[in-house]
Simulated scan of single mutants.
Amino acid sequence: MENNTEMTEFISLGLTHAPELQIPFFIMFTLIYLIPLVGNMGTILLILLDSHLHTPMYFFFSNLSLVDFCYSTAVIPKVTAGFLVGDKVISYSAYAAQRFFFAALATMENFLLASMAYDHFAAVCKPLHYTTTMMTGVCACLAMGSYICGFLNASIHIQDTVSLSFCMSNLIHHFFCDVSAVTALSCSDKHVSELVLVVVASFKIFFALLIILISYLLIFITILKMHSAEGYQKALSPSASPLTTVSIFYGPTSCHSMDSDKIASVFYTMVILMLNPLVYSLKNKEVKTAFKKVVEKAKLSVGFTS
């Protein structure tokens, strides 16, 4: 039985072996990466520049945009390069780093969505106490807690990684170092490590999802009690974008077959990250207003300098 330190590299089999699809996939994945890159970085810059967006909701959204950007960067560039140059080899250390950041960022996204749901609950259900409930310190603690939980979860994944021994093929039947695809190559007793990962993953998802569901349930109950159409619309509109994001994030599920896993992975590692900035920018009047102001200022600046 070989020790895991003797496994120096893995080879990803990618999405397809068809040569004629390599360039189209390269173009498609490049666009999928550039859209969230521009969208998320633009959103963060927009929130920083516009004082009207210096609220708890946009504080959490800017953190979510940063996590989404890092999330996509941890996976997509390596996959895209594989389509262009055909290099689908990943070193063991690079695999460990990718797994660490993938686990950390996915957990951060879970808890940031839960923090946003709690913020909307406080805004709709406890409006008179909102400013004292969602103070700057509270928002900072919620965001920091999301990051800490992410790194703790990633540390468990890394501990699981170094405990595995590999004595089989180093061919990964996936387009990136997915946990299940790599674990399938191990000749160690995987029952304990798989149980630990399932328990940890189930807890983080259940806890975050419970907060989200309870928050939005109480929000909808409060909205239904409103008799004013204006109040109804005012309370409902801030929840539309986050609720759409939550639905997208928790929507896809991975199946047991490798091909189905690949399809699901494309969705939650790429498509979701591409949709998040679009959902918030297209559905949010404040963001669109702030963007128009920035564009107008840029036009005035260009006109003045010319």
Rank of each mutant, 00 (worst) to 15 (best):
G86P: 05
I76Q: 09
A96P: 09
F69T: 01
T107R: 03
F83C: 11
E109K: 14
K88S: 03
I90Y: 00
Q98V: 09
K88L: 05
Y95S: 13
F111D: 09
Y95K: 10
V79T: 06
F69E: 04
F101V: 03
G82V: 06
A106K: 00
F111Y: 15
F101C: 08
V67D: 07
T107Y: 07
V75H: 12
L113R: 06
F102D: 11
S93V: 08
A104Y: 02
A106R: 00
A106C: 02
F100N: 08
D119V: 11
F100D: 08
M116A: 05
L84N: 04
R99I: 15
S93Y: 07
P77V: 14
A96I: 12
A97K: 13
Y92V: 02
G82R: 04
M116E: 01
I90H: 01
D87L: 11
V75C: 10
A97P: 03
K78C: 07
L112I: 15
E109F: 12
A94E: 07
A74V: 12
F69M: 08
V75D: 10
L105W: 02
D87V: 12
V75Y: 11
A103S: 15
S115E: 04
A103K: 05
L112C: 10
R99V: 15
C70A: 12
L113Q: 08
T80V: 13
F83P: 08
D87S: 14
Q98R: 10
A94H: 03
C70Y: 06
V89T: 15
D68V: 08
A104D: 05
V85D: 14
L84K: 05
I76T: 11
F83A: 09
I90L: 04
L113F: 11
M116H: 00
L112G: 08
A103Y: 12
C70H: 02
A103P: 02
F102K: 06
A96K: 14
A104G: 02
S91M: 01
D68Q: 10
V79M: 05
F100W: 13
A74M: 10
A106I: 03
F102I: 09
A104R: 01
V85A: 08
E109L: 11
M116Y: 01
K88Y: 06
A114H: 02
T73D: 02
L105R: 03
T80A: 13
D68I: 04
T107I: 08
S72N: 11
F100C: 09
T80W: 12
K78L: 14
I76H: 04
L105S: 04
V79S: 00
Y71G: 06
T107F: 05
V67F: 11
F69G: 00
I90E: 00
V85N: 13
L66H: 00
T107P: 04
N110C: 11
S91I: 01
S72T: 14
T73G: 02
A106F: 07
F100G: 07
T80Y: 07
A96R: 14
Y92T: 10
V75R: 06
Y95P: 00
K78T: 14
F83G: 07
Q98H: 12
L105H: 04
